[in-house]
C-alpha cells in the first residue's frame, strides 16, 4: 500500500505539553480516524503536518514530500477543514470562490458551484451567516474543487447536529471512493470513527497508543468484568483502567492475555469509546498510586 501521509518520530514540546515520538502512516484510499481526549495532541499533530507548528524532531511526509521544505506544494493537494471557518465570513460563496481560485492550479469553478448546489449552500449569502454544518460543507466544497488528494479534518463534527454529522460522514465516504484520495479525521466523537474509518490512530498524552486498522483495534482489546477474587494477579497487572467496585470490577484487557482466564470472568468486545475511557482511567489509577507512594 502506498502511503499518502507518513509521520515518523514526531516530537514537539510546548510548556506543559509534549508530543512524544508520534509515528503513523495513512495509506492511499483510506480514512483514518485520529482519536484521543481533548489535549492529547491531535491538533498539534495536524498543525505540524500543515507546517503551522514546527516539530522539534521527526519527519512528516505528505505525498512523498517533506512537510517543512515542500509545504506550499503539499498544501496545493490538501483539503483542510477546521472546526471553525477560516475564510472571510462577510463574503458570499461567489467571492470566496474568486479568492481561492488563483491559488490552485487544478481549481474547477464548475465543480465548486456544482458542489454548492449539491450541498444546498446559497452562493449569495455571507458565509458567516451559515450554520456550522454549512460552513463545514463549504470548506469541503473548496477542497473538492481543487481535487485535493488528502483531506484533513480537525474536529469537524463537534457541535454538528446528528443529521449534519451523518451528511458529512457520507461525503467523506464518497470522497475516497476512487481509492486515490485519503482522509485524516481528528475527533473525540468515536461513533463517527467507528462508522467510516478504516484505520485508527489513538493519541494519548502526546503519544501514539494505537495505530492500525479499525478491525485490529476491535480485536485487540476486550472489556473484562467479574469478581476481583477470580482475577489472577498476573492478569490484573495487564489490565488497563482497572476499576473495582463493591460487587466486582471492570477493566480493559489486551486479547493476548485472554488465554487461561477463569470461566467466571466475562469479557466482551471493547468499543473505541470504551478504550478511550479505560485509557483515561488507567492514567487516573497511575496518578492515584503515585500519590499513595508519596
Amino acid at each position: 500500500m502506498e502511503n499518502i501521509l507518513e509521520i515518523n518520530g514526531l516530537c514537539k514540546s510546548y510548556e506543559g505539553f509534549a508530543l512524544r515520538d508520534v509515528s503513523f502512516a495513512l495509506p492511499k484510499g483510506y480514512i483514518m480516524g485520529f482519536v484521543g481526549q481533548n489535549g492529547s495532541g491531535k491538533t498539534t499533530t495536524i498543525r505540524s503536518i500543515l507546517n503551522m507548528a514546527h516539530p522539534d524532531s521527526g519527519k512528516i511526509s505528505v505525498f512523498g514530500l517533506d512537510s517543512r521544505k515542500d509545504s506550499v506544494k503539499i498544501r496545493e493537494g490538501l483539503g483542510i477543514v477546521f472546526d471553525s471557518l477560516y475564510l472571510a465570513d462577510h463574503l458570499d460563496a461567489k467571492h470566496i470562490e474568486m479568492q481561492l481560485r488563483p491559488f490552485y492550479s487544478d481549481w474547477s469553478r464548475e465543480e465548486f458551484f456544482r458542489r454548492l448546489k449539491a450541498f444546498g449552500l446559497p452562493d449569495n449569502k455571507p458565509v458567516g451567516e451559515f450554520s456550522k454544518g454549512m460552513k463545514m460543507k463549504l470548506m469541503i466544497a473548496a477542497a473538492l474543487s481543487h481535487n485535493a488528494r488528502l483531506m484533513i479534518l480537525d474536529e469537524p463534527t463537534s457541535g454538528l447536529d446528528p443529521v449534519a454529522r451523518d451528511e458529512l460522514l457520507d461525503i467523506l465516504t464518497e470522497y475516497i471512493e476512487d481509492e486515490e484520495r485519503s482522509v485524516l479525521f481528528s475527533t473525540h466523537i468515536t461513533a463517527d470513527v467507528e462508522r467510516i474509518a478504516d484505520f485508527i490512530t489513538v493519541l494519548h498524552n502526546g503519544k501514539v497508543w494505537f495505530s492500525g486498522t479499525k478491525d485490529d483495534l476491535a480485536e485487540s482489546y476486550v472489556v473484562l468484568k467479574g469478581s476481583e477474587e477470580d482475577l489472577p494477579a498476573a492478569v490484573r497487572e495487564k489490565c488497563i483502567g482497572f476499576h473495582g467496585y463493591r460487587n466486582g470490577f471492570e477493566a480493559l484487557l489486551p486479547t493476548d492475555h485472554l488465554a487461561g482466564l477463569p470461566g467466571e470472568l466475562e469479557h466482551e468486545k471493547a468499543s473505541i469509546d470504551e478504550i478511550l475511557v479505560y485509557i483515561a482511567k488507567e492514567d487516573k489509577n497511575e496518578r492515584a498510586s503515585q500519590d499513595t507512594a508519596v
Binding site: R47, L50, N51, M52, V72, K73, R75, E76, I80, F82, S84, L85, Y86, L87, A88, D89, H90, L100, F103, Y104
Partner: peptide, 14 residues
C-alpha cells in the same frame, strides 16, 4: 477582513 484567523496562512498554498 480577509480572514477569520491566521489559520488561512497555514491553509492556502503560498
Amino acid at each position: 477582513l480577509s480572514k477569520s484567523s491566521d489559520v488561512i496562512e497555514g491553509v492556502l498554498p503560498a
